[in-house]
Design a protein around this nucleic acid. Sequence first.
DNA 1: TCTCCCATGTAATTCGTTACATGATTCC
DNA 2: GGAATCATGTAACGAATTACATGGGAGA
Lengths: 181, 181
Amino acid sequence: MEAPLEHALLGLLQQQPRSGYDLRKIFTATPMGIFSDSPGAIYPALQRLERRGWIAGRIENRGALRRRRLFRLTAAGAAAFRQLQEQPLTTDDLKRLHHVMLKFSLMDKSHGPAASVAFLKSLARILAAYIPTLRAHLAPGMSLSGRLALEHGIADYESLLGWTRSAMARYRSSARRGAPR
Amino acid sequence: MEAPLEHALLGLLQQQPRSGYDLRKIFTATPMGIFSDSPGAIYPALQRLERRGWIAGRIENRGALRRRRLFRLTAAGAAAFRQLQEQPLTTDDLKRLHHVMLKFSLMDKSHGPAASVAFLKSLARILAAYIPTLRAHLAPGMSLSGRLALEHGIADYESLLGWTRSAMARYRSSARRGAPR
DNA sequence: TCTCCCATGTAATTCGTTACATGATTCC
DNA sequence: GGAATCATGTAACGAATTACATGGGAGA
């Protein structure tokens, strides 16, 4: 699971065509702000995606108006995005939870609720295996702040595990009451 | 709050002298594995710190044995580390919670329990201000996975806020029963 | 002897950061 | 007319990643 910024850009462009400036604003003003909103990150990233043929930018309003390049996903880009979304989770991904949650947040739209539930299941499995290894590092000699920090890490993953369960329950109940999508 | 890897290296070397390989092992085998354990990250970082005069490496076992460069903090390095630890938290730091927790985990040893409590207090203040801005992004049109991801983000910061309170309580109770340190 | 682990490094490439540069438009 | 904002980009630099390279020592 590489290149989180590109992954986020593809996800946003899959929703609708946007300009570089639109994308920047999303990264400055919304919870997606984990990603860089600097023009030096976004414009080069868009250029890379365009060179790969995954997105296509076209200037809107040819006339006298303020110029604006609107980017949209190509068929190849949609396929690449789908593949990124399908990449199976590994233990390493737990170190980049932001990216994991980005993927999940786009999953309903890219692959539908069933895939979202499968994703939650695999996340739960990985967490259940990982948490005990964290606990093994609780040692007697630690400073209080060191111990508290580690305890927080453990509690954090545990609460994420709890979240996966409640999220799966939400999918079940939303399926019962008039199926979404 | 910049350069998390260097910060982590200084923190580890402050505890005791270690070799590059020791440091790598810590990053591969312990919960500090958020940082890169690749030699291409660690050795250049150690060189930078040494060039700045913050650490000094010296070869152990001059004789025929396997060579090993042990790095230790210099006085300048200890001062730099102290300053990094003292850098006040900002809202931006919430996007790099790993780094925040690293700082906290080292705080008892670098500045003592009183500083740790002050740190927790400032973290709680920033969280209390930030969480409502996240909540403002819960919108009706979102997909279920999008909504769940955002809800998780909010719950995560809320549980962190709860953790700061219980951690402060732990400091109070550990102060009551025979002073720590 | 062969393989695995200890231990240290470098090189090429990629990506992000900060800072700069440019020009149009809107609002006062 | 001047400031703020829209909108797009580039340049210099710093740092991480992957992969490669080297050599000693320990155990089978």
